[in-house]
Every structure is written in C-alpha cells, then in structure tokens.
Amino acid sequence: MGNSSSAPPTPPEETKCSSSQKLGVKSGKKICCCCPETKKARDACILAKGEEDSECKRLIELHKECLRGEGFDVK
C-alpha cells in the first residue's frame, strides 16, 4: 500500500527557481520568490476560472506591477 513516510511533492514554483535567474533590483530575490501574495491569488484564480476571466486578468496585472516594483522587466 502507500508509504506514509514519503516526502510531499515539490511545489511547482520551487522547481522553476534556478541560480541562473535574474535577481530583483530592490529585493535581491529571484522572480519566482517575489510577490507571493499576488502570485498566489493570480494562480488560484487562473486554476478556478481560466486566464481569460476578467478578475484573473486584473490579478495578473497586479502581479506584474508588483514584479516591476521589485525591479523586474515584465511586459
């Protein structure tokens, strides 16, 4: 049956981080580690409603603004 001592799966955002990624000018963090609040809200919305939903589009823009505030060049 199942092994209860197995490690939980690695969250996707941790697998995306690599040492070769650009660091934020203001925070010194990798882009995958910046703006966790807006990232979480954006991801939850996209999973529930889809990327084209108007509320999700607003959350996507808020996350981009946060990343720009950290010094990333996000289009």
Rank of each mutant, 00 (worst) to 15 (best):
G50V: 05
L47P: 02
R68V: 04
S54P: 00
G50W: 03
R68S: 10
S19F: 14
S6L: 10
P11F: 09
C32L: 06
P36N: 06
A7E: 07
N3R: 03
C34L: 04
I60K: 10
C34Y: 02
C35F: 08
C32W: 06
S27T: 15
G50H: 07
K26T: 11
V74P: 00
C32F: 11
I46T: 07
S19P: 08
R58A: 11
L67R: 04
E52H: 09
D53L: 05
S5W: 06
C56K: 02
D43N: 14
E52R: 03
S19W: 10
P12W: 08
E65S: 12
K64H: 07
S19R: 09
S18N: 14
S54L: 02
R58E: 06
Q21T: 11
E52F: 03
K16M: 09
I46A: 14
L47W: 05
K75T: 01
T38W: 05
T10F: 01
K49R: 15
K75C: 00
K39Q: 15
C56W: 03
K22L: 14
C32I: 03
R68G: 00
K16Y: 07
L47S: 05
C34W: 01
G69I: 02
G2N: 05
P8N: 03
E14W: 00
R68I: 01
S4M: 10
E61V: 01
S54R: 06
G71Q: 02
T38Y: 09
G28R: 13
L47T: 08
E55R: 08
V25A: 14
S5C: 08
K57M: 01
E37K: 12
K57F: 01
E14A: 13
E14P: 02
E51G: 14
T10W: 00
K49F: 14
E65H: 12
T38L: 15
P9I: 07
C35R: 04
C34Q: 07
C35S: 14
C45G: 02
I31Q: 10
A44Y: 00
P11K: 02
D43F: 04
K30Q: 11
S20R: 06
C45F: 06
I46M: 12
K75G: 11
E65D: 12
K64N: 01
E37T: 08
E51Y: 07
I60Q: 13
D43L: 08
S18C: 12
G28Q: 10
D43K: 04
S20A: 14
L23M: 13
C56H: 04
M1K: 09
E65L: 12
S4A: 04
T15P: 00
S19E: 09
I31R: 14
S6M: 13
E14C: 06
